[in-house]
C-alpha cells in the first residue's frame, strides 16, 4: 500500500508548488501594461491625432517646401528676433524714483511729560533705489530713433508704431516699412474726400496683409472715421497698389499685417 501510495504519478498531485506568487506578478504586470496603454492613448495618442502632418513634428515634411509651393497654404508665421540694440537711444530716460519726503511727525508733547522731544540733527540721505532688472536704461533701448516717426504735411497727418507683442519686423526691415508708407501716400487721392466735411480732424484705421510677393490683401476698415468718403478713399488707395515689392529676403514669414491710419483735417 505504501509503495503504491508512494508512486511517482501520485506524487505529482500531492506536491504543492508555489504558483501563487507568479500568478500575482503576472496579473499585476498585465494590469500595468493595459493601464499604461490606456493612459498613453488618452494623453499622447490625442496629440498625434491633432498634429499629424504639422511642420513641428516629423522629419518627412519640410516647411519651406510647402510655403514656396504655389498652393495657398498658410505657412507657420515666424517670429522675427528682437534685437535690443545698444547703439540707439531709448524712448525715455528712466529717472531714479524721487524719494518721497514724509513730513516729519513730531510727537505731541505730553503736558505732564518733562522730557523734551528729541531733535534730529541731520536728515537721512535719500537712498538711490536699486536698478530694476527688467527695465531698459536710457541709451540702450530698441530702434525708436530709427528712420521713421510721426510726420505732418499740409493738413494731413500720419504716423505709425509697432506692436510689442508680436515680432520685430519694423526694426529689422525699417526700409520696407518706409516703402509701404510712401507707396500708400502716393496713391491716396485727397480729392476723393467729400469737401464738405467738418473742420475737425478725422482718422480712419485700415488693416491689411502683405503677402510675400508684396501684394496687399484682406484690406479692411478697422475703425471708421465716420466720413464714408474718407473711408472709401483709404480703401481705394490700397486697391490701386498692385505690389509693395516682395517682402525682404531675410524675412521668412509668409506675410505681415499692417495697420495704417489716415488722418485728414480740412
Amino acid at each position: 500500500m505504501r509503495l503504491s501510495e508512494m508512486e511517482p504519478g501520485n506524487n505529482i498531485y500531492l506536491e504543492r508548488e508555489p504558483w501563487g506568487g507568479f500568478l500575482t506578478w503576472s496579473a499585476g504586470l498585465h494590469v500595468a501594461l493595459f493601464g499604461s496603454i490606456i493612459i498613453y492613448s488618452a494623453i499622447i495618442g490625442s496629440r498625434h491625432g491633432e498634429n499629424w502632418g504639422s511642420t513641428e513634428f516629423g522629419d518627412a515634411m519640410s516647411a519651406t517646401l510647402v510655403s514656396r509651393a504655389p498652393v495657398p497654404l498658410p505657412a507657420p508665421a515666424e517670429q522675427t528676433q528682437n534685437l535690443v540694440a545698444n547703439e540707439s537711444k531709448g524712448l525715455t530716460e528712466s529717472q531714479p524714483k524721487a524719494v518721497e519726503q514724509q513730513p516729519e511727525a513730531l510727537p505731541i508733547p505730553d503736558r505732564n511729560a518733562k522730557k523734551k522731544p528729541e531733535q534730529r540733527t541731520s536728515p537721512e540721505k535719500p537712498r538711490t533705489p536699486p536698478p530694476e532688472d527688467n527695465r531698459v536704461p536710457f541709451g540702450q533701448g530698441g530702434p525708436v530713433s530709427g528712420p521713421y516717426g510721426v510726420f505732418t504735411a499740409n493738413n494731413a497727418k500720419g504716423g505709425f508704431s509697432f506692436t510689442g507683442a508680436a515680432g520685430d519686423f519694423g526694426s529689422q526691415f525699417g526700409w520696407y516699412v518706409d516703402v509701404v508708407r510712401r507707396k500708400v501716400s502716393e496713391n491716396w487721392m485727397k480729392y476723393e474726400i467729400d469737401p464738405t466735411i467738418s473742420s475737425s480732424s478725422r482718422r480712419v484705421y485700415i488693416v491689411f496683409d502683405i503677402m510675400s510677393s508684396g501684394e496687399p490683401t484682406n484690406v479692411q476698415i478697422e475703425q471708421s472715421s465716420g466720413v464714408p468718403s474718407l473711408d472709401q478713399s483709404a480703401i481705394r488707395a490700397l486697391q490701386r497698389i498692385d505690389s509693395f515689392g516682395p517682402l525682404p529676403g531675410g524675412y521668412r514669414g509668409s506675410k505681415v499685417s499692417v495697420e495704417f491710419w489716415f488722418d485728414y483735417k480740412r
Binding site: 508665421a77 508680436a166 514669414g253
Partner: peptide, 30 residues
C-alpha cells in the same frame, strides 16, 4: 491631460501670431 491640453492651446496661440506693422500717412511723400 489638462496640462497637455493647455500646452497645446498656448503653443497654437503663439504660432497664430504674425508680424504687425502699424503705419499711417498724410499726403507728403518725402
Amino acid at each position: 491631460a489638462a496640462l497637455v491640453l493647455l500646452t497645446f492651446v498656448s503653443s497654437s496661440l503663439l504660432f497664430a501670431q504674425t508680424d504687425w506693422i502699424r503705419t499711417g500717412t498724410g499726403l507728403g511723400v518725402e
